[in-house]
């Protein structure tokens, strides 16, 4: 599973402060640490507080790329902020994200095509957050057909069924797990699937445990990618073990080490 490191996000206090004060070291350490712990991609989000979001995105991308070649997921609700990042990336990036709303698709799909970037599609539309798996599939199908029309390869599309906090909408977690399976049937080649993992445990007292358990369950459903915290060692151990049991890699006594050295 592709782990997209979530830590470079202005919503975290240390990152918000680093962006405001231009502390390169803080960002670069987070980038290197996340890659060392298994992140295959790094999410980059300037956060809500950045004074000039476009400039902050450019600065972050440059600062991160000074220390790693790991691809970046450019995370913003503003297309111009994403595009500022796309212009600077050295490796194929991931746009985070579009929804099934027409104006979002109209502005982000051409961008994905022009910059040959991947794209996360949140399965939500005008009516807001989906209420069940059927509505998720409906939005997903809309995003898939928009990609086909815009000639964005479906292998580059990551559909996000949208996780809701388990303490708020307990019945939704199971709907999300079913959707991960169902999205795969939408097209051939199948679109990929992604979740923003930490949302499952938002507001709970046992965040790491809930994240870890959900990620293992989602792995069984065939989840391709997760935006998550690779610095949570137990989370990564759980994922590696789940993938071992799913026969994704060959067992040996030091299988955790082996996977980390990969």
């Amino acid at each position: 599973m592709l782990v997209i490191g979530e830590r470079i996000n202005g919503m975290f206090k240390d990152v918000g402060k680093a962006i405001a004060d231009k502390e390169r070291g803080v960002i670069q350490k987070l980038a290197k640490d996340q890659v060392a712990q298994g992140a295959g991609m790094l999410d980059v989000n300037v956060g809500p507080a950045a004074a000039d979001a476009v400039e902050a995105m450019k600065w972050l991308v440059e600062v991160i790329q000074e220390v790693t070649d790991t691809p970046l997921a450019l995370d913003s609700t503003k297309p111009e902020v994403i595009e500022a990042g796309l212009k600077l990336v050295k490796k194929k990036a991931l746009i985070n994200s579009t929804t099934a709303k027409k104006e979002k698709l109209d502005s982000l799909l051409p961008m994905a095509k022009q910059y040959k970037a991947g794209l996360i599609g949140l399965t939500m539309g005008e009516s807001g957050i989906p209420r069940d798996r059927h509505q998720r599939s409906e939005f997903a199908a809309r995003i898939v057909s928009a990609c086909m029309e815009a000639q964005v390869p479906l292998e580059d599309l990551y559909l996000d069924p949208i996780i809701l906090p388990v303490n708020v909408a307990q019945a939704q977690a199971q709907e999300v797990l079913e959707s991960i399976r169902e999205f795969k049937l939408l097209s051939d080649p199948s679109p990929k699937t992604v979740v923003g993992l930490s949302n499952i445990s938002q507001g709970t007292k046992s965040r790491s445990l809930i994240n870890r358990t959900f990620l293992v369950m989602a792995a069984v459903c065939g989840l391709d990618a997760a935006i998550a915290d690779p610095l949570d060692k137990e989370l990564m151990d759980g994922l590696i073990t789940a993938e071992l049991i799913l026969n994704k890699h060959i067992y040996c006594a030091s299988f955790l080490d082996a996977r980390r050295k990969k």
């Binding site: 060959i250 067992y251 040996c252 006594a253 030091s254 080490d257 082996a258 050295k261």
Partner: peptide, 14 residues
Amino acid sequence: DINIAKQVNILISD
């Protein structure tokens, strides 16, 4: 034994 094959390589590389 493929598991041991892999393990020996890890031990050597460690």
